[in-house]
Design a protein around this nucleic acid. Structure first.
Lengths: 346, 346
DNA sequence: TTAATCAGTACAACGCAAGAC
DNA sequence: TGTCTTGCGTTGTACTGATTA
């Protein structure tokens, strides 16, 4: 009869064996109880004894051992290009709200401006995550994706054939934006983005060009191959490009995110420009700060928390084998504020 | 001679055994190579053979198995009250930059306004994290901390006896702030915070009161027991409290974070108040948006990325048994902007 | 001869889950 | 009902031989 192997090495760490010893059952029974597989396997009395022992000893199933035995973990991996953008804070909130504590959210940031390598993707698979949430991926990353794992792509327009996606209705958002600018009399429009290669930013530009062309408007681009969503960089880009834009008659600057727009706003003001009289500025995201900038920012609202929430639902459905719409699209609404309004049509 | 057990169940998943088979060595040798413990144990030739096999097969050490065998994982857990505040984005960036890819950063959010329970703490320990980074903890949480794990508390003034900490020099920051307000003629000051029970917010208030008392100034508090760092809630708090504050002669509102200050700013403007002529407003953090609000925000700058970076260094030092200063303090500098300046001293 | 270093392997954990019994 | 047993994939310890100081 082996004694309880309690103080084998460290006095700490409660194992199923200790629980079993205390409850007077086998380890297998403990496992059945903690995993709710008691139906027809464990008597009510034993269930109760085990439960009691678990609370008495404060037992928690070891994550590593459980993952190893099962071949998969309860970790959900969120891969984002840049957590410092508050937009991702919203996304994360949405995910957390949805997954509760059954799964654990692990963050993996590809790092400032780094394109994720196959190696780093592999690092992630070593965790045997229950699922992968990948925000604003580029093509290189998608190629290396493990096919065995549940995957949802967030804000990855054009990748609908690769995996489940949750996208924004950018087309309609951009359409409204361009129409709005057109009505205000703008004909020459500049576009500031970062992170060349991120599909969603490229799409925003393509849609802009299409929508603009349909109305005889022209899009000019900032020549910044930035990889960050960064206020200061956007400000630099604006400052550098403005002389040329101005010479070409640009009167409105569309930015790929609100954060870029804040930078543009700052730069414009530093250059002594009046917004929107001299230049109108718009963004995407509708961060909370966009109501208190001077002037408040016209922007295409992208529901970040909703993105996180729906993506998580999507992923859980995959993991649990439920059927769902694989490509939901979230609305993108134009929010008109003073950074474009107030310009007299010319 | 056993064949390579390649297609045992799923054709996927490369194991050390496969690598060993291909390299013509034992599994143990493979382990030694991947863990860089070859010194005097593995010949250069075998190291090379194993390395080759690893790249050929694209082998990655399984996280669960490794963690189980070692009794600890390579996960670093960040516990934050609210990821949606962009301040945490900075902190996360700093941490990521420091830990590289040797460790994986796992996020655990205690949820909107939830005080973390002992149960949730235990959930975390099931992961056997290499270390814990805990931001702005409250006392209840600290009581349940596992003592065996490496822990660093971030922005946890007053908890220096509990664990390693990385704090801001709030005292000096608040001192400068109060002096600044005093010079501008303010005597009655209101304070808006969220998250009652978070030590750092309480301390900001205490320091404010001490500093103010020394100059014959008075602090009034908003009666909001909010638990969120949330622009809208702060706006509500301002709107609700302003009539009374105004009646008592309050001319300046100090907010516990910039995000709160944005809300106050918005509310003040909605009430038709001029900032800073009718009411001065200040924050803490110095988020990038504070330069482009209207007016730009006077704030106590708290270096968030630095906080993350230093905390991670601190944690790695603990994990690796190195000696370091256990309680570094990061500077908190007052940034004077238009939300307080421009008020004529009365 | 006795240590000590080097090279490499066998094997028992690690703690849990699931199928056989 | 419930337990036994095996396996998940790694890691570290103990061990074997051989060579060198």
């Amino acid at each position: 009869m082996p004694e309880t192997p309690a103080t084998s090495r460290r006095a700490t760490h409660v194992t199923a064996a200790m629980v079993a010893a205390r409850a007077g059952t086998s380890v297998a029974t403990v496992s059945l109880v903690v995993n709710d597989k008691t139906k027809g396997r464990v008597s009510d009395e034993n269930i109760e004894r085990v439960r009691q022992a678990i609370t008495d000893l404060n037992y928690i199933v070891d994550h590593a051992a459980s993952s190893l035995a099962r071949g998969t973990s309860n970790i959900i991996l969120l891969v984002t290009p840049d957590v410092s953008n508050p937009f991702f804070g919203r996304v994360i909130s949405g995910i957390q709200a949805e997954i509760g504590d059954r799964y654990q959210l692990l963050l993996s940031t590809t790092g400032e401006g780094q394109i994720p390598t196959a190696a780093s993707v592999n690092q992630l698979t070593a965790l045997r995550p229950a699922g992968l949430l990948i925000d604003a991926p580029n093509d290189a990353f998608l190629r290396d994706l493990p096919r065995e794992t549940a995957v949802v792509l967030l804000d990855a327009p054009g990748d609908e054939d690769q995996a489940a996606t949750v996208n924004f209705d950018l087309k309609s958002g951009v359409h409204d934006l361009v129409e709005h600018l057109h009505e205000l009399g703008h004909r020459q429009i500049a576009y500031i983005a970062g992170r060349t290669g991120t599909e969603t930013f490229l799409l925003r530009r393509r849609l802009l060009e299409e929508s603009a062309a349909a109305r005889g408007m022209v899009i000019h681009s900032a020549d910044n191959s930035d990889s960050l969503i960064n206020l200061d960089r956007a400000a630099e880009a604006f400052t550098t490009s403005w002389p040329e834009w101005h010479a070409r008659g640009v009167t409105a600057v569309v930015c790929a995110t609100d954060t870029h727009a804040y930078g543009a706003l700052q730069a414009a003001i530093n250059l002594g420009l009046r917004v929107p009289e001299d230049v109108a500025i718009t963004g995407f995201d509708n961060l909370p700060y966009s109501t208190i900038t001077s002037p408040p920012l016209t922007t295409v609202s992208l529901p970040g928390k909703e993105l996180g929430r729906v993506s998580a639902q999507q992923l859980l459905a995959q993991i649990e084998g439920r059927e769902v719409d694989l490509h939901p699209v979230l609305p993108a609404r134009l929010i008109r504020r003073a950074s474009t309004l107030g310009l007299s049509a010319n």
